[in-house]
Nucleic acid binder design. Structure first.
Length: 510
RNA sequence: AGUCCGUUCGUCUAGUCCGGUCAGGACGCCAGGUUUUCAUCCUGGUAACACGGGUUCGAAUCCCGUACGGACUACCA
């Protein structure tokens, strides 16, 4: 391991919302940085003007904020190596591209899209192993390797569209050590002459990311494994630019796969998979299509982070619940797995449940109050706290609270027919009438006292618990579910209990 | 098609580097227990080393091959 300062970057392109794979990449970078007292940088790779999506950058920043992934340096916060938006660094890249040309490692290419297509078709027809622009095919193309210097100058002066390509050598072994996968090697003959500079005056990702990583003194490049195949081109760039000794270390993380089996998870999956792929809800600015987010679906951000942290990484212990702080203390790259993982919505739910039951009642009540207000229910925080305490173990999300507790706030409007059929017998009305009397006589309407009184009555009259308590629950709740009947009774109060029993006697008929 | 990467219960995974406990945990599912009910909870159960060779006293672990999966092969990142 080297001892240089850890500086890592998360470098998304603003072509749309971040999906959970992107968030995980950001998270792993962040955790690695924090673990080593390093710096986490956000760099926006907006070199493709055509794919730019309005609002995407804000979305990325907001997502990281929600996740509690704090940006030390970069877009939105600034820093020593500003600007951090590649479109604003445009001029920097040109210099290096020209340096590569002067040193014989790159060249101008004037081929039109048409000509490129013809070349590929021709090679295909010849059953050539690949149709790349490479050491073989470039000899027949319109580029500065084949044209005279005069011609090249003339073409450039007359503003002929052109690109700058990397001159990839033939038959060289290009190797790098990946911190996740170990040594990976490629034969340079299989690499294509990557475009470094596009005809629109923008660099491509390949040039820009190498230049920026070097200038920003990035120590480790942690990214998805879809980048493995272009890494040798990057290694070549570091070498040709004379930066091989300062080259960052690479760690390629396994991809997050679609749960149905096929392929990597993609932004375009939206809600098609039956679970959100985005951290925050996203409205496509072009189509106005809305895709759901984890935040809006009721996930706590700390639970969400916990879920993501364990996708493709594990600490080697049996602990599964981790705070962000714990993660920053124990995270390490060498415990990142090699194979892709599928996201399991069921387990995600379980994680949220764990976080939910560990939250304090005040916080949950505060969140639940918003829902109650929307339903036009105005009740005291004190009451909601009591309710939450009784029902939180039965929920995975705050949004589950209503169906677990509506009966605290309103009378049942219907009675579950199945339960009615099973529990409401011929003589139940009479039993309820008697229970009603018993309840009406309770002075101190506390759950323990209600329970004691009712149970005493049952025993004294040789009734069974089920025969009394089940119909009673039906009256109070409308179904056969819910927390302790006596707790419910205490919270809704004697008057309400009496009213609901009367309603039940009247409305529930055999 | 080529290149690169990968493959342990249905899913997330431990164990692999440094061969040697009935291959461990979690989610899910199933059963039992607790409960006035439902849920939670507790206990138990279900279920995996892709395949074939080799090396070895012994292989999930090392080597080779096959199969399968994935990524990449753009003037996208």
């Amino acid at each position: 391991m080297n001892t240089k300062e850890v500086r890592v970057r998360f470098a998304p392109s603003p072509t749309g919302p971040l999906h959970i794979g992107g968030v995980r990449t950001a998270l792993f970078n962040y955790l690695f940085a924090k673990k080593h007292n390093g710096t986490f940088i956000l760099r926006i790779e907006d070199t493709d003007q055509n794919r730019y999506v309005k609002g995407a950058e804000d979305y990325i920043v907001n997502s990281l904020k929600w996740c509690n992934i704090k940006i030390d340096e970069g877009v939105g916060v600034g820093g020593k190596y500003a600007p951090y938006r590649q479109s604003e660094r445009k001029d920097i890249y040109k210099k290096y591209a020209e340096q590569l040309i002067n040193d014989g490692f790159a060249y101008y290419a004037f081929d039109t899209p048409d000509e490129l297509e013809k070349m590929r078709e021709k090679l295909k027809a010849e059953k050539s192993e690949n149709q790349q622009y490479n050491f073989l095919s470039r000899t027949a193309m319109r580029n500065s390797l084949n044209l005279s210097q005069d011609e090249v100058e003339k073409l450039i002066e007359s503003n002929t569209p052109h690109v700058i390509r990397l001159k990839v050598p033939e038959n060289e072994k290009v190797e790098f050590t990946d911190l996740v996968h170990g040594k990976i090697s490629f034969d340079s003959s299989l690499l294509d002459d990557k475009i470094l500079f596009k005809s629109d005056g923008m660099p491509t990702y390949h040039l820009a990311n190498v230049v920026d990583d070097y200038l920003m003194k990035i120590s480790h490049v942690i990214r998805g494994s879809e980048w493995i195949n272009s890494t040798p081109s990057h290694v070549l760039l570091y070498r040709f630019l004379g930066w091989e000794n300062e080259m960052p270390e690479f760690a390629h993380m396994p991809l997050i796969l679609k749960p149905n089996g096929k392929g990597k998870l993609s932004k375009r999956d939206g809600d098609a998979l039956g679970f959100p792929v985005f951290p925050l809800e996203w409205t496509n600015p072009n189509t106005n299509e809305v895709s759901s987010g984890y935040r809006e679906s009721g996930y706590f951000s700390d639970a969400f982070i916990n879920i993501l942290a364990l996708l493709g990484w594990n600490p080697g212990t049996e602990q599964e619940i981790f705070s962000m702080k714990e993660l920053t203390e124990i995270f390490s790259l060498d415990r990142i797995g090699k194979s892709g993982s599928r996201f399991d919505p069921e387990k995600a739910k379980w994680f949220n449940h764990q976080y939910l039951i560990n939250k304090n009642n005040e916080e949950l009540a505060f969140l639940y109050q918003e829902i109650l207000k929307e339903k036009g229910i105005e009740v005291s925080d004190k009451l909601v706290i009591k309710v939450v305490d009784l029902i939180k173990e039965r929920a995975s999300f705050v949004s589950d609270f209503w169906k677990q507790s509506f009966f605290f706030f309103q009378k049942p409007t219907e009675y579950d027919p199945k339960v009615v059929k099973k529990k409401w017998k011929e003589d139940t009305s009479d039993t309820m009438k008697k229970i009603l009397e018993v309840i009406e006589n309770i002075e101190d309407f506390k759950s323990e006292i209600i329970e004691e009184t009712v149970k005493n009555y049952i025993e004294k009259n040789e009734l069974s618990f089920g025969k009394v308590l089940n119909p009673l629950r039906l009256c109070l709740v409308g179904s056969g579910k819910g927390p302790s009947l006596f707790h419910i009774a205490e919270i809704i109060g004697k008057e309400e209990v009496v009213e609901r029993i009367n309603n039940g006697i009247e409305k529930i008929k055999k």
